[in-house]
Amino acid sequence: MVTLTQLNGATKQEFTEMVGWVFEHSPWVAERAWARRPFRSVDHLFAVMADVVKGSTRDDKLALFRAHPDLGARARMSSASLSEQHRAGLQQLSFAEYHLLTRLNRAYRDKFGFPFILAVRDRTPREIQKALEQRLAATQEEEEQRALAEVLLIAWFRLRDMGIEER
């Protein structure tokens, strides 16, 4: 269990080790947030991290998006992504479902230049597929904004799930 007191007193490296994984393979978010300590609450910590991401360059945001795995991919991914996708049923897809999702993921990546990002918590494989199909119709700008919102939601879930004690 991590406490706010520990986070606020941590060195930059310690802080990054504790929360740097919250944004998929992007510890730079935690590294930049560290300088804005002390954090008054988990909500405040998240708000600071979200501000870091929102205030970053477009290239940084695209790199953050590209750090995410394709949904349903049978490839190496962070343990957090693996767990989230497993709970959503994406590791138990039928052969046909897997190939459809793979095709849609490829079309999305080809169109937007980064993987389809969706907070899959409490979603079924069918809901995920439908969201992917719908979002393929978006513009580049719309989809970058939506991907950013989804990245932030995923990070919020991960940070909340850490069970940081506010003491």
Rank of each mutant, 00 (worst) to 15 (best):
residue 148 L to E: 13
residue 11 T to G: 10
residue 67 A to R: 00
residue 141 E to Y: 01
residue 149 A to E: 09
residue 22 V to K: 04
residue 72 G to P: 06
residue 117 I to S: 07
residue 74 R to C: 00
residue 166 E to I: 04
residue 18 M to T: 01
residue 46 F to G: 00
residue 123 R to M: 10
residue 95 F to L: 08
residue 61 K to Q: 10
residue 151 V to P: 13
residue 131 A to E: 12
residue 98 Y to S: 14
residue 47 A to C: 04
residue 151 V to M: 11
residue 121 R to P: 08
residue 3 T to L: 05
residue 144 E to K: 05
residue 14 E to F: 06
residue 134 Q to W: 01
residue 16 T to V: 15
residue 142 E to P: 02
residue 76 R to H: 12
residue 132 L to G: 07
residue 25 H to L: 12
residue 24 E to P: 08
residue 159 L to I: 11
residue 147 A to L: 04
residue 43 D to C: 03
residue 81 S to A: 15
residue 54 K to P: 00
residue 49 M to T: 10
residue 47 A to S: 13
residue 5 T to A: 12
residue 83 S to M: 00
residue 73 A to T: 14
residue 159 L to P: 06
residue 4 L to E: 04
residue 30 A to M: 11
residue 161 D to G: 11
residue 14 E to L: 03
residue 4 L to C: 08
residue 95 F to R: 09
residue 41 S to L: 10
residue 69 P to V: 06
residue 79 S to W: 07
residue 83 S to L: 08
residue 140 Q to I: 00
residue 64 L to P: 11
residue 74 R to Q: 09
residue 111 K to E: 08
residue 95 F to P: 02
residue 151 V to Y: 14
residue 3 T to Y: 04
residue 40 R to A: 10
residue 108 Y to R: 09
residue 166 E to M: 13
residue 21 W to N: 13
residue 96 A to N: 12
residue 41 S to T: 15
residue 128 I to G: 02
residue 69 P to Y: 02
residue 156 W to V: 00
residue 167 R to L: 09
residue 71 L to F: 10
residue 163 G to F: 12
residue 131 A to G: 07
residue 67 A to T: 06
residue 129 Q to K: 15
residue 34 W to D: 10
residue 72 G to M: 06
residue 58 R to I: 13
residue 122 D to Q: 15
residue 45 L to R: 05
residue 65 F to T: 01
residue 76 R to M: 11
residue 71 L to P: 04
residue 67 A to D: 02
residue 70 D to C: 06
residue 52 V to N: 05
residue 130 K to I: 03
residue 58 R to D: 14
residue 114 F to Q: 00
residue 138 A to M: 09
residue 82 L to S: 10
residue 39 F to D: 02
residue 95 F to D: 04
residue 146 R to C: 02
residue 113 G to K: 11
residue 125 P to A: 01
residue 13 Q to K: 13
residue 76 R to W: 09
residue 110 D to R: 12
residue 98 Y to F: 15
residue 89 G to E: 00
